[in-house]
Each structure stands twice: as C-alpha cells, then as structure tokens.
Design a protein around this nucleic acid. Structure first.
Length: 212
DNA sequence: TTATAGATTGCCT
DNA sequence: GGCAATCTATAAT
C-alpha cells in the first residue's frame, strides 16, 4: 500500500477532471496498524452553484461548508436516514465542487469490511458466492462508507492529503484501460448531465453491466 | 412549527 | 420490480 497520499494540487482543478483522475486510485482507512484499502472504480462529479443536483447549489450552509473550503477534504453527509456518502472537495477555497465516491474494488481488510457491513465472510462463503458477496462490501456509496466505518461525525472535513490522517487516497500506479461516462445515478435534478465515471468492465461498479 | 424529498439499501412479492 | 425504513436539511405554513 502506498504511504504517500495524493497531494492537495491533485484536487485543485476542475471537478470533472478530478472525478476521472480518481478512478484507479486507492482509498485507505487506517485503524492503528491495520489498513482497509479499496480501488476507486466509480465516481460522480458535483459542480458548484450552477449544478442543481449538487448540495452546494444553494450556496454555503452549515451542512455543505466543506465543499467551499480548501481542496482535498472529505465531505461526508447522511442520507435517507440510513446511509453516509463520501465526497472529496475540489477547486480552491471559495469555489464549490466535489466528487462522490460511488464504488470500490476491495483490496485488503476484506474480513473487517464484512464485519463492518454485518455480513458473514468465511472461506466457504467466499468459495461458493465470491462475486456476489464481494460486491456487497463496497459497491454503492452507502455500502462503502459502512465497510470503511466512514461517518459524518468522524470524517466530515478530514484532510485526505495528510499522511497522518486515518483516511487518505493514494496512487499505486494503476491506470484504467478505458473510462466510461454516463448520467449520474439516483438524482432528479440535472439528471442528463454526463458526470458519472467508471472503469469499463470493472465488476465492482454499481448498476447492471456497468450501465444504468 | 410542520411537511416533504432525498447523491440508498435491503427485503418483499 | 416495488416499497418501507429512518434522519435531517430545507421549504412551506
């Protein structure tokens, strides 16, 4: 696992470019000496005050203030009374924009992820239902937060570029072969904008056959 | 002060 | 494929 997080400059540019560039990077949750890691395989861009679907659309509020802050910080919100979602904010302080992390390919710490998700993941289960089970760990924005124990209370506003942070994003050199662009999922406003990015063919992206 | 919709998920038929 | 669960930000009263 790479020890050096992506630098702040990585996030200090157009939100769509960051959303695409985050594909293939590694999300790292550190719990003492143990690590949970997963490769980012699906993202969505949420633009500034011009994007009706973005939480930043109404301007700065208590809830969304992280999106207007300096780049490279986690924006975590609670939705539908049940789920947390993880974003990283982009662009310089004062400009809104963030990327929603929608799906990961789990890499290390799978048993802990399963425990966090309330799933049984023994060897027998892996042998018989591996693809189904593994997809239940970190496919979907709410699921990956539960698997990584990401909550608003614990992680909102956290600097993901700080190596001492327990939530960081790093580059291990992996580059996606091909990237698909589609409309965003689960929104009603600005639903036609092509702002969802995923690694073509990766089985851990959400949706059927990597589409929707 | 009350009502409503929401960047989701899991269980039901 | 349909729908309930369950909290909260924001709009409407």
């Amino acid at each position: 696992v790479p020890a050096v997080p992506l630098p702040r400059e990585f996030y200090d540019r157009d939100t769509r470019r960051v959303a695409r560039a985050l594909l293939g990077k590694i999300l790292i949750r550190r719990e003492g000496r143990r690590h949970l890691t997963g490769r980012i395989v699906e993202t969505e861009a949420y633009l500034g005050t011009d994007d009706a679907a973005a939480h930043s659309a109404p301007g700065i509020t208590a809830r969304n203030r992280v999106i207007f802050g300096p780049p490279g910080h986690a924006y975590v919100y609670f939705i539908y009374g049940n789920h947390y979602c993880l974003n990283v904010n982009c662009l310089p302080e004062g400009q809104a924009g963030c990327v929603l992390i929608r799906a990961l390919e789990p890499l290390t710490g799978l048993e802990q992820m399963a425990r966090n998700r309330g799933l049984a993941l023994d060897h027998k289960a892996v042998e018989t239902h591996a693809p189904r089970l593994l997809r239940q760990l970190t496919t979907g924005p709410g699921r990956l937060c539960q698997a990584f124990a990401i909550t608003r209370e614990r992680d909102n506003g956290k600097d993901v570029t700080n190596a001492r942070s327990d939530l960081t994003i790093a580059d291990d050199g992996f580059r996606p072969r091909r990237v698909l662009t589609t409309p965003r999922i689960g929104i009603t406003k600005s639903a036609d904008e092509m702002l969802r990015y995923l690694i073509e063919g990766n089985p851990f992206a959400s949706g059927v056959m990597n589409k929707r």
